[in-house]
Structure formats: structure tokens, C-alpha cells
């Protein structure tokens, strides 16, 4: 067999064994198990945020609070929940457009996704955490303002916890993902370069 001849290569290529692939019935069973797994986390996040926001709205609506800080705090938490839900809905809508795109369009999509992730870390996440934290601290005020010791203790714990999240957890998670994003960028650039080389 001449390995230089394309027809010979095609003959060799087609000898690859494919008999271990699942049958169409087995594939349908597998699909039943995995079909929604890809975007499941995004959907879970959307549903949780919407439930959380609805719950806060219901509490603010049905319970009469005396302090305006409780309403402002609740409102800020609702906004932060809706912001996360909206970001994830927008992301899912982008994925829906991926059904029929060429490799070149796909690589451009991945690059856009990478930029969106960076924007999420640098802007959206900052807004969400800020809104939610301030909202939470304001929401708590009415319940504990009558007990100075509790007020001091709970606010101290809350502020330490938020500072821990902000200064320890967030940078760590950001650094971890930044390395991944940088690797993706490098890979994308290589593939784009390959496609654009004439």
C-alpha cells in the first residue's frame, strides 16, 4: 500500500474499527441521562437567584417593617439576585446561537466568552457582591439595633466574613481561573492563526 496516495490513505482511514460505538438505542438512553447536564449549573443559578429575589420581595411585601433600612437592604439584595440571573440568562442565550456555526465562528465565540468571563470578574461580580453585602448589612439593622451587644457582634462577624470572601476567596478563585483563561487565550490565538494563515 502506498501511503502517499490519497485514495490509499482513505482506504486505510476507513479500516478504523467503529463497532464499539453505542447503537442508536443505547445512544438515546445516554442522551436521556446527559442531555441537560451542560447548562445545568447555569439554570440552577438562575432558578436559585429568582427564588431568592422572590422570597425577599414577598417578605418585604407581607411583613411590615419600621425601618427604611430594611426595605433598602432587601431591595439591594433583590437587585443583586436579578443581576446574577440576567447575566446567566444572557449567557445561555449566547450558547443557543451556537447550534450551526463554523469552526472559525466557534473560535470567535470562545474568545468572546473569555472576554465576558473577565468582564464578569472585574465588573459584574464586584457590583453583585457590593449590592448584596450592603443590602444584607442594612437588612439586618432593624432586627439587632435594639441590642447593642448583638449589633456589635453580628456586624463584626458579618464584616469579617465579607472581608474574608473579598480579600482571600475572590482573589484565589480569580487567580485560578485567570490561569485557565490565559491558557485558553493562548490556544485560541494559535488556532485562529492556523485558520487565518493562507
Amino acid at each position: 500500500m502506498n501511503m502517499d496516495n490519497l485514495n490509499d490513505l482513505k482506504t486505510v482511514w476507513h479500516t478504523a474499527k467503529t463497532d464499539k460505538l453505542p447503537t442508536s438505542k443505547e445512544m438515546l438512553k445516554l442522551i436521556g441521562t446527559f442531555r441537560n447536564q451542560k447548562l445545568r449549573n447555569k439554570w440552577l443559578m438562575i432558578i436559585s437567584c429568582l427564588l431568592f429575589s422572590s422570597l425577599i420581595i414577598a417578605v418585604l411585601f407581607f411583613v411590615s417593617f419600621k425601618e427604611i433600612t430594611t426595605y433598602i437592604g432587601g431591595g439591594l439584595m433583590v437587585i443583586s439576585g436579578l443581576l446574577v440571573a440576567a447575566t446567566n440568562i444572557r449567557s445561555i442565550k449566547r450558547f443557543k446561537h451556537l447550534d450551526n456555526c463554523s469552526n472559525l465562528e466557534f473560535i470567535e465565540f470562545i474568545e468572546q466568552t473569555r472576554q465576558n468571563q473577565i468582564y464578569y470578574y472585574k465588573k459584574t461580580m464586584v457590583r453583585v457582591v457590593l449590592l448584596c453585602s450592603v443590602g444584607w448589612l442594612m437588612y439586618l439593622y432593624e432586627f439587632i439595633s435594639k441590642y447593642p451587644i448583638w449589633l456589635f457582634a453580628i456586624y463584626s462577624i458579618a464584616i469579617i466574613y465579607l472581608a474574608f470572601l473579598w480579600f482571600i476567596i475572590r482573589p484565589r478563585s480569580f487567580n485560578k481561573d485567570a490561569a485557565k483563561l490565559a491558557a485558553t487565550r493562548e490556544k485560541m490565538e494559535t488556532i485562529l492563526q492556523q485558520l487565518k494563515n493562507k
Binding site: 501511503m3 490513505l9 486505510v12 479500516t15 478504523a16 494559535t190
Partner: peptide
């Protein structure tokens, strides 16, 4: 034929992604 096939796939795997 098995060895030819292995070699073909190996040579292809050494190419760039889009190739």
C-alpha cells in the same frame, strides 16, 4: 493494516489542530 492505520492516525495527530 492495523499498523498502517496506527501510523496514519499518529501522523495526523502530529499536525496542527485545524490541519
Amino acid at each position: 493494516p492495523e499498523e498502517k492505520l496506527k501510523l496514519l492516525y499518529r501522523c495526523i495527530s502530529e499536525l496542527e489542530e485545524t490541519d
